[in-house]
Each structure stands twice: as C-alpha cells, then as structure tokens.
Design a protein around this nucleic acid. Sequence first.
DNA 1: TATGGACTTCGAAGCGCTTCGACTCGCGGT
DNA 2: ACCGCGAGTCGAAGCGCTTCGAAGTCCATA
Lengths: 360, 360
Amino acid sequence: MTEHGGAKRADMVTITDVARHAGVAVSTVSYVLSGKRAISATTRQRVLASIRALGYHPNAGARALASKRANVIALVLPLRSGMHLPVLMQFATAVVTTARQFDHDVLLVTADEGPDGLRRIAASAMVDGIVLMDVEMHDPRVPLLRDLERPSVLIGFPAEAENLTCVDLDFYRAGAACVDHLASLGHREIALLGAPAVVYERDTGFAHRTRAGFTETAERYGIAATAQPCEESFDAVRQELAGLLERHPDLTGLVVHNEAAVAHVLAALPLLGRQVPHDISVVAICPDEVAERASPALTSVLIPAEDVGHQAVTLLMRKLEGQQVPAATLLDPRLTVRASTAAPAAADSAAILPDGAVMR
Amino acid sequence: MTEHGGAKRADMVTITDVARHAGVAVSTVSYVLSGKRAISATTRQRVLASIRALGYHPNAGARALASKRANVIALVLPLRSGMHLPVLMQFATAVVTTARQFDHDVLLVTADEGPDGLRRIAASAMVDGIVLMDVEMHDPRVPLLRDLERPSVLIGFPAEAENLTCVDLDFYRAGAACVDHLASLGHREIALLGAPAVVYERDTGFAHRTRAGFTETAERYGIAATAQPCEESFDAVRQELAGLLERHPDLTGLVVHNEAAVAHVLAALPLLGRQVPHDISVVAICPDEVAERASPALTSVLIPAEDVGHQAVTLLMRKLEGQQVPAATLLDPRLTVRASTAAPAAADSAAILPDGAVMR
DNA sequence: TATGGACTTCGAAGCGCTTCGACTCGCGGT
DNA sequence: ACCGCGAGTCGAAGCGCTTCGAAGTCCATA
C-alpha cells in the first residue's frame, strides 16, 4: 500500500485530504461523518467515496479535543484476590463488545491504581464515562465518583447508592432460586456454604443478599436451613462439611456460593460417605463454565456476566446522552439443572409448594 | 471541592490556567512537564506548585494531537474458546500495571473485531503500539501488523515471525521440566495428555513445542513416553485415561497440559483404580491458581503470565523509543512441587540422571 | 418584482497542547 | 570593551477536528 505513489512518510490521511479529494470544504466532510447538518445525497456519496478511496480514519485525539468527547469509556477492574477471574473476563468482553456497538472503545484501568487513577483518567478527558466493577459496600471510590464530572455505572451495590447507577445479578433471587429447586425436588433440610468469612466481613453486598434469599425462602417453605461461610482450601471445606453433616445428619441439599470451593466440595463429599446426587444434592451459584467442568456437572445458577456487562454499558451510553436511567437494575438469575441434583433418596420424595401444600 | 469559589461550570484546568497562576508562559509549563528543555529550579518549583494548587491534569486528546503520541497501548485479547481465562486476566493485569509504570494507559481490544479493529485503532492514532495475545501459527492479523505504522509485540509465536517481536513461555523447556521432575523421582514410563486435537490442528505453536520438549527429554532419559491429545469433557478424559492405562499398564507418570481437563483427570484416576500420587504421579502445566485449587494440589509448571505481560510491555516501550529489541524472548518455566507427585510405589525408586547414570 | 425561507455549503475560529525559533541575560575568553 | 555562548524563557505556529455564523441558491409567497 505504502509503495503506491509519492506518499510522504507517515501516510496519515487527514480530513483535509478527504475534502480536497472530494472537492468540498473540510466542514462538509465533518458533517457527512457526524450527520449533524443536512448534506445533499450527491455530495455525501462523493465524500464517502473519497473516504473509502483514501482509507481515511478520523484522528481520535483531534476529535476528542474539538468535540470534548473521547468516545472511550473506562472499565475499572478489581483484580483483588477472591474474585473469580473467568467471570471478570466475560464481563470485560461483554463491555467491550457493547461499547463497540456504540462506537466507543474501552480503556482498561486496574483498581490498584486506586482513586487517583480514576481521577487522572477522568480529568485528562481520556474517557467520557466509567464502568466500575466489583463494588464493595463501603467502597472508597464511590464518593469520588460523585464528584467526577463523568457519568458512571457500577456493577454491584455499595451501601450508599444515592445518585448512582448500579447493575447486578439479583443475588437475593439467586439464593431463592436454589431453594426453590431443592424444595421442588423434595428436600427438607438444606445448607448454604458461602464465601469465606472475610468476604462477609468486608460487607460485600452480594454475599449477604444471597444468604438472605436462601434463608428467607427456606423459611417460606418450612425447610430447615443452615448458612455458613466457608474457606477455600480443601481441608477447610472438608472440615466444614464434616461438621455440617454431623450437626445435621438428615441434610440432603447443599447450596454452594463459592466458586473456588466447588471442586473441593465435590471431592470431599464422597470421602464423607455421601454420593452426589444420590445422598446429597448440590446446587452452585457460579459461572456455567465452572459448573460444566465439575464432576458431576453441577446444577447451577449462573452469574449472567454478559448480560450485566451489556446492561452496564447500555446504561452508561444513555447517561452520556443525558437521558435519565433507573438507579438500580437487577438481573434475573437463571437456574440450569445438571447432574448434581436429584430427589432425596431415602426421604419421602413429595414436592412441597411454597404455600405449604404437598404435591404427590 | 467544586463548591469552592466562583468555579465555572466544567472546571477543567488547562495549561493556560497553570501558566497564568505561575506567572510564566504556557510553553514553560509544558517544558517543566516534559523536561525537554532546561528550566531553572525556582521556576520549576513555582510551576509544580501551581499545578498542584489547581489540580491540573493535561488533556490527553490535546496532548496526543500536538505530540503525535497518545501514551496509550492496545491490548488485543482473543476470547476464543479453549483459552483459559484466568491466565488471560493475569496477563492483562501485568500489562496494565507495567504500562502505567511507563506512564501509558491500555486500550482493550477484543479479537472479534478482527483485523479491521486493529487497523482502526492504529489509523486513528488512538494507540502508539500494540500487544497482541494468543497468537496462532497462521494468524491473519500478523501480516497486517507489519503494514501498520505502529510497533507491536506478540505473545506467542506465529509460524512466520520475520520482523516481529515475540514473547512466550519456553514451552519446550516446560515439557522438558516435567520430564526432569518425573525422571528424578524414578518414573520409567510416562505419558503426556495434551490439548484437544483441534488445538494441534490449528497449529498453535505452544502445544507442539511442549510435546517436543516432553518427548525429546524422555528419550534423553531413556524413559518410555507417550503423547496424545485430549478432549475436555469428563467422559473423554476418562476414556483417554482408561485406554492409556490399558495400553501402558506400567505407566506411573502423567503430564497434563490442558487446564480444562486437569480436574477431570484427578477425578477419573481414582475411578480407574489409581490413587494420586501413590499409584501415579501427575504434573500439570497450568497456572498456579488451578494447581493449588485441585485436590490433591498439583505439582505444576506455571505459566508465568505476569512475567510475560511485563516483558511484552517493556519490549514495546523500547520499540516506541526507537531501540532495537530481540525478536524472540523465551521465559523460563518454573516447576513447583506439590502433592500430586511422588516416587513410583512398586518400582525401584532409583533416580536416573540425564546421562544415564543411576543414583541410589 | 421584491422577499423570505428552506436547503446546502463554506470559511474561520478555536479545542489544549507541543515545539521551534528567537530573544534576553550573564559570563568567560581575548 | 567585544564577541560568543549556554542557560532560561517567551511567543506563535500549528496538530486535525468540530461547530458556528454566514453566504449562496432556488423556489414559493405576497
């Protein structure tokens, strides 16, 4: 390509080149591109032809400078330990893909730059808006977000969500959905194995909300339910399970909301004399990928990472256009039945309906 | 902050504001920031004080426009199926962190935009350079990279690496390291369970190189060695293993280079009557995270994702400064011994040295 | 026939920054 | 006393784009 004619070094084609080639003013080319003023069909065609002929791409910096819009959004990822990476990646992909649909690019910011990073990015006008992931209940970045001149969308819910736009899986209903499923299979005594204790202490909202959904729904069904945190090492898992089974010998259903522990749970149960799903059913709240990869494949409520990412960007774009958007968006959990759940073996396998009626 | 004085709407501080506040010319401020001309210590201090006082951040677009340097690099991620996501994430983090050390930001580009995405990013002068991940042997993006005016670094090796800069784990030596370890434990018959067949067909370089390192090193030790691809479902893994053990009843060492199959291998071996590591030792080539999470914890050669990402960015920065860099950078594998390997139980547990001598 | 829109298009003024040439010192050398 | 020179600073010219006001056309209205 470069060896064509008398192309000077650094053959960046500018809007001026296009204008000259098409025989119009620079501003006309600009208006063809932006559509902000009416341009006759014939002129438009001529300009577009020139653009194609020259392989013109607008200079992003110049455009940002003149229009005060960078057409870039920031994606702030945590990379804190304890986060499950595949889910993050799915988020990220969805965010990028959706952003591209709106003709925006994505700047990747890691949280270890801290609030200063956010401030820098925003103040330098590199980005028009911000998507913030893995928000904690008391997140130091949240107050900053309010001061920033740029719109933002959070994935997750901080304690103080005033004036903020948040998106997340509806963890309450996710916890509930697991109980629904186990109840409908006829289980009468179940337990929730959650995140490590430190996560609860950190006040990460989703852990609490899942537990609430689990506990309250079980209560509604009149099912005996225990909830407890769980560390991620194999020994810890095994110990937790052993204790749990000892205290609740009739336990037949287990909800696991801890991606890292899932494999260990499946490995430990047989060692404790419980076959899955014959003796005990297991439902996980985790990405499909993890559920499918486990042996046996896990019935699971998936974290709809792609939906969340897509929603977040869509909301952000609305805000960029000055539209009003709902402060909270909760996404529906979806439960996929796989090989790890079944009706309890020994028990009377009647299904119990929420109102307490028994279906035979 | 905003409610301070008579701050106008959109309180973006410009270099002009700083200059006025410090009582110097705009160009002086610029030179203080860039260090491209000598500025007296007193002036510099005054300017820096003003910058701090006003909370000035240079406008990225203006800077890019005037200097023709965006201070942004592109990170092109694949998101093709079969890639293990956590590793990607580690890469990404390392890339961002390192880029920040060089005062650059990172634009996230997904491969599904294809070559056009690359072209757009480069032509619009949004980025100064490109880091391309998960390069295939015959990658359609590679020829494009040569035409682009921007420097780039590949992670992985394409078949035709002329004029390109590539970084990767030394998979040959990774395969070799696994054999070294097993041999030193006294194993005499081992096998490699690799990626799904399709990966080999796609000519992904690393799969072939691992196998070569494995096979050739085993030969050097005079150890019986088999290598075969492996699909990722549990049933496939179990079947592969069953066949393998039938054909090679004395097999005592297994190298797994397939992150997705790792868990299944560990689950299937007991079912086939083999305890790990008593009856059979398992070494994996996978991220530490996966190895640690498995039960039992796996002896593994880790993919040094962080090093690779760091190296890639460092090389790119050198290229941006016009320096010459080596075309190929291979990173050393590191093997971590965990619970999944031991001397073979029944066998004579002598250690064999590479030269054929036997150590008792 | 004058008049005023609609419809198109043009020219020029920036956006905030970098960079180049030029200017002003003060100093050592002769 | 003069020149030359380096150090420090300034002013102005863009970088490539958007956008505003205005100008030119053409046709329908009064």
